[in-house]
Amino acid sequence: MNDNKAVIEKFYTSFQRLDAGSMNACYSDDIIFSDPVFGLLKGDDVKVMWEMLCTNAKDFSLSFSGIELLDEGYATCQWKATYTFSKTGRKVTNHIKAFMRLKNGKIIEHSDAFRLSTWLAQAFGWKGTLFGWTGFMKRAVQKNARKNLIRFIATHYPDPET
């Protein structure tokens, strides 16, 4: 089995177990990540994001398939996460296409693509269906996700100098 494929399989099997530590071991220290909810994150912020998502997951299940090695450094796969969105208590099934760049046995870039308006409709019901296509609602969700990440960092990794 190709080493890059093994890294991707380890990442997602760890995610299935909500094991953020093992997921993050697949990343380089200077990982770059992006998705429609969190936008662009780098380094430790990426790793803490996965820790936050794994810690807060409710009724979570994940499947992945179609790992495709495009060349020696690039790969894609599909994954599906089903969970209860904590803010509304609504069930969400998110279909995602991941794009990864790997080097020296580590993921150095990771981008997840999914239709944010579809996610918003599931997570927020009629409000998400009606307004999920608007830039206003998308920006509000992105701002809230960042705020939650900052709060998680402050709670779990307090500044020792304060």
Rank of each mutant, 00 (worst) to 15 (best):
S14R: 01
Q16H: 04
Q16V: 00
R17D: 10
R17L: 09
R17N: 09
L18C: 09
L18Q: 14
D19K: 00
G21K: 10
S22H: 04
S22C: 04
S22D: 07
S22L: 05
M23F: 02
M23D: 01
N24D: 01
N24S: 01
A25H: 08
Y27Q: 01
Y27R: 00
S28F: 07
D30K: 01
I31W: 09
I31V: 00
F33N: 00
F33P: 00
S34Y: 13
D35Y: 12
D35S: 11
D35V: 13
P36C: 11
P36F: 14
V37E: 04
V37P: 03
V37C: 08
V37T: 02
V37D: 06
F38K: 00
F38I: 00
L40I: 12
L40T: 14
K42M: 10
G43Q: 06
G43A: 12
D44E: 06
D45P: 06
V46I: 00
K47L: 02
V48P: 00
W50D: 03
M52F: 00
C54F: 03
C54P: 01
T55P: 07
N56I: 02
A57W: 13
A57N: 04
A57L: 14
K58F: 06
D59I: 00
S61L: 04
L62I: 00
S63A: 15
S63G: 15
F64Y: 15
S65W: 06
S65Y: 06
S65C: 14
I67M: 04
I67L: 08
L69A: 12
L70G: 10
L70N: 13
D71R: 07
D71V: 01
D71Y: 14
E72G: 13
G73L: 13
G73R: 11
G73N: 15
Y74F: 13
Y74Q: 11
A75V: 02
A75C: 09
C77V: 14
C77R: 14
Q78H: 15
K80I: 15
T82V: 11
T82W: 09
Y83A: 02
T84E: 05
T84L: 01
F85P: 08
S86V: 03
K87T: 08
K87C: 04
T88F: 03
G89L: 04
G89P: 05
R90K: 15
K91S: 07
K91A: 05
K91W: 01
V92I: 09
T93A: 10
N94L: 11
N94W: 05
N94Q: 10
N94F: 04
K97S: 09
F99S: 09
F99W: 08
R101L: 05
L102Q: 13
L102H: 12
L102F: 08
K103R: 10
G105D: 02
K106H: 07
K106V: 02
I107M: 03
E109Y: 12
E109I: 14
E109K: 12
H110A: 05
S111C: 12
S111A: 13
S111K: 13
S111Q: 12
